[in-house]
């Protein structure tokens, strides 16, 4: 085998998939963070479990598309329930999210136990950590495989799904940039302009749900939750401009995915241990460390709003 062949076969696809997943979640995460809805990523990834179980019970297969549709449907149901509880119960959004996602996740676990799913492999561990390390590019023989259509066709399907999802999210954010920015900053003014702020907010949550479900399938919910919050929060500490914040968040999502995967695979060897650790866990950890660093040395960590506080 030529130099790097092993890397291309074993590590390239997981790194690319991890990076795509991280960026797809971080992009809508910027707006969720500014709207104080960052936990919605957490909610969506939890309710994916009952969605997947219901999809299995209905279709009887564990094929990818029914699972993803089930998860996405559950996300939409959860968002509708959160809105309903917020309005009927007049409670704050965080409380409504907490009630909905814990209840639906618990319902998913019960459903899983009570239904006849013993013959198939749906386990909670898989849902949490994903299986990034197993997304191997079997057909690759080296860097030259990147120019070989036959080998490229053998890439893990998650890579193509995530690439499509990421493209959809980028198009959505670019097309509705002004609407998202104005309705996030000043919803009353946005409504007076004729922007349908409710529809914009719902579209953002649906885009987040699509990102979460596609990423969840490939990398598990730990990365999904971390990527909705950490890169945008880190980026917010680097700049005071929305466009630049989003660019920084893409950079931080990318570096945490790559560095996390490399540390998980090779880090334990550097410390004399033979076993690699979970890539998903390490990626989330790196994202958290980046945020910690930015909290200490980020140029915009001093919040400026105090001067503007009323009275």
């Amino acid at each position: 085998m030529e130099v790097g062949a092993e890397f291309v076969q074993l590590s390239l696809a997981p790194i690319v998939i991890g990076t795509l997943a991280a960026i797809a979640c971080a992009l809508p995460g910027n707006f969720l963070l500014l709207r104080r809805q960052a936990l919605i990523g957490d909610a969506i990834s939890h309710v994916a479990l009952p969605g997947i179980v219901v999809a299995f019970l209905v279709t009887g297969t564990i094929a990818t598309w029914p699972m993803m549709i089930g998860a996405a449907g559950a996300a939409v149901v959860a968002v509708a329930l959160i809105e309903l509880i917020k309005r009927l119960g007049r409670v704050e959004p965080g409380a409504a999210m907490g009630v909905v996602f814990t209840t639906l996740f618990a319902a998913g676990v019960l459903l899983l136990e009570q239904s006849d799913t013993s013959g198939v492999h749906i386990d909670v561990e898989h849902a949490l950590y994903g299986n990034l390390e197993s997304l191997i590019w079997f057909d690759a023989v080296g860097w030259s495989s990147l120019a070989d259509p036959a080998a490229l066709a053998g890439l893990p399907p998650q890579l193509f799904r995530l690439a499509i999802v990421l493209a959809v999210i980028v198009v959505f954010l670019v097309a509705f940039w002004k609407e998202l920015a104005i309705s996030t900053f000043d919803p009353g003014f946005a409504q007076a302009l004729g922007i349908r702020t409710g529809a914009v907010g719902f579209a953002l949550v649906v885009a987040s749900a699509i990102a979460a479900v596609a990423a969840f399938d490939a990398v598990g919910s730990i990365i999904v939750i971390a990527m909705f919050v950490c890169p945008p929060a880190t980026a917010r500490l680097m700049t005071d401009r929305l466009g630049r914040q989003i660019a920084w968040s893409v950079l931080f999502a990318t570096t945490s995915a790559i560095a996390g995967y490399v540390f998980a695979g090779y880090g334990p060897l550097w410390f004399g241990s033979a076993d690699a650790v979970s890539a998903a866990g390490m990626i989330a950890t790196v994202a958290g460390l980046q945020l910690g660093l930015a909290c200490m040395i980020g140029p915009r960590r001093q919040r400026t709003g105090q001067a503007a506080a009323p009275h």
């Binding site: 996030t184 900053f185 009353g188 401009r241 914040q245 919040r303 400026t304 503007a308």
Partner: peptide, 10 residues
């Protein structure tokens, strides 16, 4: 004026 978050990155 107090109805918006002036920490918004803009």
């Amino acid at each position: 004026r107090a109805s918006v978050d002036w920490d918004f990155p803009a």
